[in-house]
Every structure is written in structure tokens, then in C-alpha cells.
Design a protein around this nucleic acid. Structure first.
Lengths: 179, 179
DNA sequence: CCTGTTAGCTACTGATGAGTAAGGTTACGA
DNA sequence: TCGTAACCTTACTCATCAGTAGCTAACAGG
């Protein structure tokens, strides 16, 4: 049922997604959605929460403490790109649909993204040359780069998550400067 | 008049922006908007077109041919961060509001973003070690990183565009690896 | 076989907002 | 002073959903 909602929200966006359409996609009737999951806002927030949590859990699990910074980074990115590849709809809802301002969800999605940023900033702070506060803007850039590259990845399904990780590691770890 | 529309779209998003509110913000009445700029869709597209073109022009002008790649990159980024700082509303419309899928604007904004990506990819291709095709995913990551960092910059107005450029150049040009 | 209860559906209501029709007002020429 | 034309506004219509009321069916227990 939530899956159907995510699929429809992904295709249409929040405002253009009609509750009737979600109900139909889920194979039930509209009042059922209201009975089980509440109003449209709550439904959308429930979708965001679940998908964001899923992504967060995957990344957290992929990054055990004690590894070298660049190895942690690599594994976290791999978890991220894998998520995007396997849950296209979820990703589109989180990245493109939920960020619109003015709704009651702006806060929700900002918080979810914020948690990821904090996680990444924490990772980078373990890296010897950076403290946590200094690493926050770096985390923003890094997360943005991953998002941007995943956007390209959506149009290139033949590119494996591993390959995407390699590309991104090359850029942000090694740098683009000619050697 | 377009300025008022951009301000309202930025605050509310496309669907929650009422034509009445835009009219009021512009200091005219609703039918005037329709007379001069057409329906809501066309109005929004007009906003996107103008702001995207503005950004594109700024970046293009900031990147003269013949400079060293990293200098071109630096100047392009500076133009970008300056735009975001000076035209907050425009940027929010382009980045957060227009990307929602399903509307008639998805194509418009994707095209605008695509042009920037092509421009950046072209820049990178001038860089000795990369060809144009290979540089497209890099351009995606780079543009994403700039977007992500500008997001952080919106919450830190004390950070100058120059400072943002320095941060980003450090990451993508030098790389994060400990030296 | 009858009755109460759960579960779900069809069909409605009400609000919101895009787009417009018809009426007012000012400026200006005769 | 009157006519008229450009311009702008108020006040409406109509469509689209979010959310709900009330009906129907199935089924369990007696």
C-alpha cells in the first residue's frame, strides 16, 4: 500500500497525485487509504519517513567503524548508489518530489537529508586532517556530488553502482588536477 | 511582474502559489497577469526560462576561453555561487520548485540543467587528461557538488561566494585524500 | 436461520483556485 | 459637455480533488 503510494508520488509528484489513483494502484478503494494511513499529508510523510529511514539504515550498516576513511567513504557511497538503482521511485520521491518548499514536508525532508549530512560529516571528521565542524560544508558538497552523479546514473542503467562509486571516488578523493 | 511571480513561486512552490497572490505581489489584478503573461503554466515556464538564461549567461561570460582549466573552473563556480547569493529566490525556484516531475516544466528545467552540464563538460574536456564524453558524468558530479554546497551556503550568508569556491576547488581539484 | 459485527465500496459534499465575463474608470479628442 | 476607447477590476463559473457518510456484503456466533 505504501509501495503503491511511493510509485504514484514518484510519477506525479505530491499535488498531481490523486488519492483515487493511489487507491487504484494499491488495489483498494480510497476510504481504505484514509482508514489505514490517514490524510494525504500523513501518507506522503509516511512515505518519506520510510524511504529515508531505509536509505539511512543501509548507509549506516555499510559503514562499520574502524576502517580507513576512504574505505568508509567508498562503502557508504556504494550503499547509496545501490539504493538509488534498486529503489528508483523511492529516490525520486525523496530527491525531486519532497523538496518543494511550502508544504508540511519541507521540514521532514530537510531533517532526513540533514541526518545523512551529519553522518557523512562524522565520517569525514574521522579523517585525520579534518574536524567535525570544518567537515560539514564538505559533507554538503559530497552529498550533492553523489546526488548529481546518481541523476546521471538514472539515465545510464548499464553503469553499475560500483562503477559510479569509482568515478566519484576518483573525483573527490584523488581530485581532478592533472598529476 | 515576473519578479513578483518568482518571489511567490519561490516561497510557495508552483501548486500552492495562487494567481491571486502573485497578482497582489505584483500590485496588479489577476486578469492582467493573464493578459500579459498567459496561463499559470506559461508564467512558470517564463520564470524558469528567464532565470535559467540569466544563470547561463553569467557563467558563460565568466569563463573566457584560453585560460587554464582550473582557472576556468574557478571562475565559473564563482559566477554560480554569486548568482545563488544574489538571486536566492531565482535559485530556489530553479533548484527546488521546478524539478518536481509530472508538470509540463520537468522538460524545461531538465533542458536548462542539461545546458549547464554540457557547458561544464566542455570545460573539463579542455582539461588535458579528459575527453568530452568521459567528462559528462564528472560534470554531473561537479554540478551536484556545487548545488549541494550552495544549499549550505544559503544557511551561511556570512560565507562569501569566493570562500565557497575555495572550499569546492579544494575538494574537487585537490581531492580529499591526506597528502 | 437470524442477528450483530467487521470490512469495504459507491457516491456524495465542500473547498479551493484557475480562468473569464461583464462592468467601471480615466484620458482624451471633438 | 459628451462620446469613445483603452485599460483595469470585481465578481463570477466551472472543474478538480480531498475527505466522508451511509449503504452492502460477508461472516461468525447463537
Amino acid at each position: 500500500m505504501l509501495d503503491a503510494a511511493v510509485a504514484v508520488f514518484s510519477r506525479r509528484g505530491f499535488h498531481l497525485a490523486a488519492m483515487d489513483e493511489i487507491a487504484e494502484a494499491a488495489g483498494v478503494s480510497k476510504p481504505m487509504i484514509y482508514a489505514y494511513l490517514g490524510a494525504k499529508d500523513e501518507l506522503f510523510i509516511a512515505c518519506i519517513r520510510r524511504e529515508a529511514q531505509r536509505l539511512m539504515d543501509l548507509i549506516t550498516a555499510a559503514v562499520p567503524a574502524g576502517l580507513a576513511p576512504h574505505e568508509q567513504l567508498r562503502r557508504g557511497l556504494l550503499a547509496f548508489f545501490t539504493f538509488v538503482a534498486e529503489h528508483r521511485d523511492s529516490w525520486i520521491v525523496l530527491y525531486r518530489q519532497a523538496r518543494v518548499q511550502g508544504g508540511p514536508f519541507a521540514g521532514e525532508i530537510a531533517a532526513a537529508r540533514g541526518r545523512i549530512i551529519v553522518l557523512v560529516a562524522g565520517l569525514l571528521a574521522d579523517s585525520p586532517q579534518k574536524e567535525r565542524a570544518r567537515s560539514t560544508p564538505v559533507a554538503h558538497a559530497l552529498v550533492g556530488a553523489a546526488e548529481g552523479l546518481s541523476e546521471w546514473g538514472l539515465d545510464h542503467p548499464e553503469e553499475s553502482p560500483e562503477a559510479l562509486v569509482n568515478r566519484l571516488m576518483k573525483i573527490v578523493w584523488t581530485g581532478l588536477a592533472p598529476t
